[in-house]
């Protein structure tokens, strides 16, 4: 069965299920929070930007925090819903004996959730960038932002691969949801951790795509901490390399799980 037909089928299965509504709510709530934070923007005397570009980059680092929180939980929640559809009532049997390929099913479910995760990431980026552009009027450093977006997509691949593997392997969906909890936690605290920590765990790769960070300049005469914003240069070669490895791992996982007994 070709992919487009398989997508059509998957969509049909989601009838009466409010699947996309779930995604929408999971995206809109934090997005509203972001917009609320961005409703005003003013330059604080305690934060020093070397260039206007850095304002965009620092804002990007803020949204990466939010995305790091949301995306792993979203991955686990959404893939759990899709996989549980088949885990219930031994529907895998129904599909496999009708000659629907496990690999096609796996790919379609993966791509559906991946697409939604990408959409969320994109919406966050666009919202932040355009709001800032509205306020600052400064040119948007598209190239670097785009690269970081692709880097985050790599992190999404990693997160979703692990979540999907767990959702298929374990009948009990609590497992994948708890994994989502941990994944989100690790992704969230990774920016605070040293680099090697982020490289070690797949969920740390969200933090590796942050474009700017703050460095303390010490306390001023008024006793308040001063900060300088410095640019970060993600190691995209490494990030993309590991992401590619995870794509290979995904395929291997798909092959291995297709052989299990139903």
């Amino acid at each position: 069965m070709n992919l487009s037909k398989a997508f059509n089928l998957e969509l049909y299965k989601l009838k009466h299920k409010y699947f996309f509504l779930s995604w929408l709510l999971l995206t809109v709530a934090p997005l509203a929070y972001l917009l609320y934070n961005l409703r005003t923007f003013s330059f604080s005397p305690h934060i020093h930007y070397a260039s206007v570009e850095l304002v965009y980059f620092y804002e990007q680092s803020e949204i990466v925090w939010l995305l790091a929180l949301i995306l792993p939980v979203m991955a686990s929640l959404l893939i759990s819903k899709l996989i549980d559809l088949e885990n219930k009532n031994e529907n895998w049997r129904l599909l496999i004996t009708a000659n629907e390929d496990f690999k096609t099913l796996w790919s379609v479910k993966f791509l559906t959730v991946f697409f939604l995760m990408e959409l969320t990431t994109l919406l966050f980026y666009l919202t932040a960038v355009f709001r800032l552009h509205q306020i600052l009027g400064a040119p948007i450093p598209v190239g670097k932002l785009l690269l970081s977006f692709i880097g985050l997509s790599g992190a999404n691949v990693m997160t979703l691969t692990i979540a999907q593997g767990l959702a298929v392997f374990y009948r009990n969906q609590a497992v994948v949801l708890i994994e989502g909890l941990f994944a989100s936690f690790i992704a969230l605290i990774s920016p605070l951790m040293p680099r090697w920590f982020c490289y070690l765990l797949p969920w740390g790769y969200y933090a590796l795509n942050i474009l700017a960070t703050n460095e303390s300049l010490g306390r001023g005469s008024d006793g308040i901490m001063n900060w300088k914003i410095i640019e970060l240069y993600p190691n995209y070669v490494l990030i993309f390399g590991v992401a590619l490895l995870f794509i290979a791992a995904n395929v291997a996982l798909m092959r291995a799980l297709s052989k299990r007994e139903i």
Partner: peptide
């Protein structure tokens, strides 16, 4: 055509 153990179906459809 086959049925193995319990019937398989999508309950929400």
């Amino acid at each position: 055509g086959s049925i193995i153990e319990n019937p398989s179906y999508y309950g929400h459809l």
